[in-house]
Design a protein around this nucleic acid. Structure first.
Length: 469
RNA sequence: GGCGACGUGGCGAAGAGGCCUAACGCGGGGGUCUGCAAAACCCCUAUUCGUCGGUUCGAAUCCGACCGUCGCCUCCA
């Protein structure tokens, strides 16, 4: 079977056929760095991460670009409010974004292009649109895309361009447009705003143009997958298609993938609604980043995900179940013949895992296969039917699948000397049958986030997965 | 108002005509194991899939109506 993905434009789930066989080019609409991103934003970034990880797991080469939009109205406003430059504000939140992303185990994209570093490409794109008759300039030096010149407008969002005149609203800086539906490609210079001198005149990029310019610069005029949150379908991605295809005359994106919203309190999580949670705040409150990551990726990306008080504890428990098995496999020692049925078990789990993910990233089906494997491995561990080598193979196998999920604890890391000493002391107390002392040490270790268990393979420990509660 | 998505156990969620007396995770109850725990394993926890009709030998899965929730149409992941 091959990877099949849903495409917003056609509404179909189609096999992925990269334009260049074996090499998939992916563009993800990243954050506008005007403030800290919330976990709803991260849901869509982690969805893209899951996609990229899976394609790589599948043996495909992936080039992944994710933009950082570092110039726009909100950045200008925020910088003005703080009395700092737009560059300084953007840098600050770009750094913070990358820190949050890496805490959540997000793969670093191959390219992280910034709008302000692609001004020439943006200006060139506008010039091409002008030459092709799709763009016009207004008195203030702004450039607009002429929607009337692009009949395909509205296809992605399934909106009727004719009907869009209803409820029209004219932004204060958009007077002079020929048609209210037209959107800004380039904004003329204004006092107090950053401005770049370019062949199309001075000013700054509009709202959507940077993604067209950067994606085509780094991935080519046509590429395979473009991802983002559903709220970007219109107008952002609709406009990207129009301006890109009108400029190049080539199909822009093969597959458009959109992630549904994260909800809190029944509503879309959004800064404007005030119902947001931020990564750094949650981690500071003691939430395990792996639990948070699991909570955000364990529901299919096209289904709304309701974030509640139970989300994190449930996710933490699931992740801990995986950790516990990995720890048990690592500690397991049994001198006996290999279990001849183990390879069959593992390949069955793999088949289920892949069948799920192949089907438009059906994570639930994949996780079901994984956890069925977890239960069966636990059984065999308890029954001692595995050899030491079997346990090692099983652990390697689980880590291979987890390369896609990115939630399991790293292999037995070095423990802080102080905690290691406590573990040693406890083992000694236990062998001397000093139960009170060994129990006291166990409690103390538990408070420090180390779960200690006594097994036939000896004393075993692992870091607990906290949910902040 | 226009367009669209969705409604499955205590919670999350898969399943999209017969393998469903409904996967998987969380939670709860009982048990086994253990110095005690923990982890793990075993059993139980939806004869039922928003409601009402219809199609069919057969429907959670198809059709219709209704009720409810959410999103987009404006900056937004």
């Amino acid at each position: 079977m091959t990877v099949r993905l849903a495409d917003t434009l056609t509404g179909e789930v189609r096999p992925l056929e990269p334009l260049e066989p074996g090499h998939v080019r992916v563009y993800t609409c990243g954050p506008t760095v005007y403030g800290p991103a919330h976990i709803g934003n991260f849901r869509s970034f982690l969805f893209a991460d899951l996609l990229v990880r899976y394609l790589r797991y599948r043996g495909l080469r992936v080039t992944w670009a994710m933009n950082l939009t570092d110039i726009d109205d909100k950045i200008i406003r925020g910088a003005a409010a703080e009395g700092v430059s737009t560059g300084e504000l953007a840098d600050r939140y770009a750094t913070r974004f990358l820190a949050d992303a890496s805490a959540l185990g997000m793969t670093r994209p191959d390219v992280l292009p910034r709008a302000t570093e692609h001004i020439p490409q943006i200006a060139d794109l506008v010039a091409r649109l002008r030459d092709a008759g799709h763009a016009y300039q207004t008195e203030d030096g702004s450039w607009f895309f002429r929607i009337a010149s692009w009949p395909a407008y509205g296809r992605l969002a399934r909106l009727d361009p004719e009907a869009m005149r209803v409820g029209e609203r004219v932004e204060s800086d958009e007077y002079g447009k020929d048609d209210v539906r037209d959107f800004a490609l380039w904004k003329g210079p204004k006092p107090g705003e950053p401005s770049w001198d370019t062949p199309i005149g001075p000013g700054r990029p509009g709202w959507h143009i940077e993604c067209s310019a950067m994606s085509m610069t780094h991935l080519g005029p046509s590429f395979d997958i473009h991802t983002g949150g559903v709220d970007l379908v219109f107008p952002h991605h609709e406009d990207e298609i129009a301006q890109s295809e009108a400029a190049t005359g080539k199909p822009f994106v093969r597959t458009w993938m959109h992630c549904a919203h994260l909800r809190l309190g029944g509503e879309k999580m959004a800064k404007s609604k005030g119902n947001i949670e931020r990564v750094a705040d949650l981690l500071a409150a003691g939430v395990s980043p792996r639990a948070l990551r699991y909570a955000l990726i364990s529901v299919h990306y096209r289904a709304p995900l309701n974030y509640t008080d139970e989300s994190l504890p449930a996710a933490a428990a699931a992740v801990d179940r995986l950790d516990a098995l990995l720890a048990a496999l690592a500690a397991y020692r049994e001198d006996r013949a290999d279990d001849s049925t183990l390879p069959g078990l593992l390949s069955g789990v793999r088949a289920g895992f892949e069948a799920g993910l192949d089907d438009d990233l059906n994570i639930s089906e994949a996780l079901a296969a994984l956890f069925e494997g977890v239960r069966e491995l636990n059984r065999r561990l308890a029954d001692r039917t595995l050899s030491t080598a079997d346990a090692a193979h099983a652990a390697t196998f689980l880590r291979e699948l987890d390369a896609v999920l990115g939630v399991a604890a790293p292999p037995a890391d070095e423990l802080e000397p102080e905690l290691a000493a406590m573990l040693e002391a406890r083992a000694a107390a236990r062998s001397a049958r000093q139960w009170a002392e060994s129990d006291r040490l166990r409690d103390e270790l538990a408070e420090r986030g180390i779960a200690v268990e006594d097994t036939r393979d000896g004393q075993r420990w692992r870091r607990t997965v906290a949910s902040g509660g």
